[in-house]
Design a protein around this nucleic acid. Sequence first.
DNA 1: AAATCACATTCAAATTAACGAATGCGATTA
DNA 2: TAATCGCATTCGTTAATTTGAATGTGATTT
Lengths: 130, 130
Amino acid sequence: MREDERLSRLFKALMHPARAQILDLLREGEECVCHMEAHLGYRQAYISQHLAVLREAGLIEDRREGWNIFYRVIEPGVYDVLDRARAMIGNRVPKHAGQRAAAVCSCPKCNPQSVSAEPMTIAVERAGAA
Amino acid sequence: MREDERLSRLFKALMHPARAQILDLLREGEECVCHMEAHLGYRQAYISQHLAVLREAGLIEDRREGWNIFYRVIEPGVYDVLDRARAMIGNRVPKHAGQRAAAVCSCPKCNPQSVSAEPMTIAVERAGAA
DNA sequence: AAATCACATTCAAATTAACGAATGCGATTA
DNA sequence: TAATCGCATTCGTTAATTTGAATGTGATTT
């Protein structure tokens, strides 16, 4: 693949706001899909589609662990690109918008105590439950 | 315009190889359209279309001088983005592919001696000319 | 083996980008 | 003012991207 094609493919991957959000979410390390779903507020299939674009662009790779699939950025240099771009347009780099609203997904990383925590139902249970 | 929209617009502008070439050609300073046409080998209208995209993305601005219109990069920070991107994918930054093949266009910058040089006909004139 | 969980893929419709061809336009010269 | 120069814009067609909806898949539990 030629130089300009690789460059084009990189920018094409960074072009979409949802994909930039996903990459920002992966700044601190690998995350599962349910984590992105919970923190970004997109539908699961929608996220999976953008993950496929990022994967085919060679930016991320995945690892399965039981039910969950964890994604991580292959080359941290993407963050240099993202940060320079934000600096150019005069924006701050997001302090990974997640962090709060913890344990909203059921992956073992978000719920270290109970290896197989309850499904994504949190405090708000069915109104008429016991 | 929101942050993510501005970021998206920037990457969308950098996405196309021809536009990256144009920006690389403007590293050393302003150039006229005929210069890009001569050095990049694209048709004039094609270049103008990409210049319009770059202009609407807020990356370049133009200045008229007689017959020629000179373009320049507004925010040099784009080169930080381009260079980081190339570094990430393991490519060198192009040493502005122009420079040689000088004076192939008729703009006063390429032909400082004769303010209004002959049109783009170079050595190869009409076969049957005097 | 059947059901379930987390996630991926396919399909189709709508939007947008790319690009060639043709034409328009402002400034300059004759 | 008519012709020319350098460049911009519009138009139409083709290709790519986006996004929702539906469905498929591998690992796990029962």
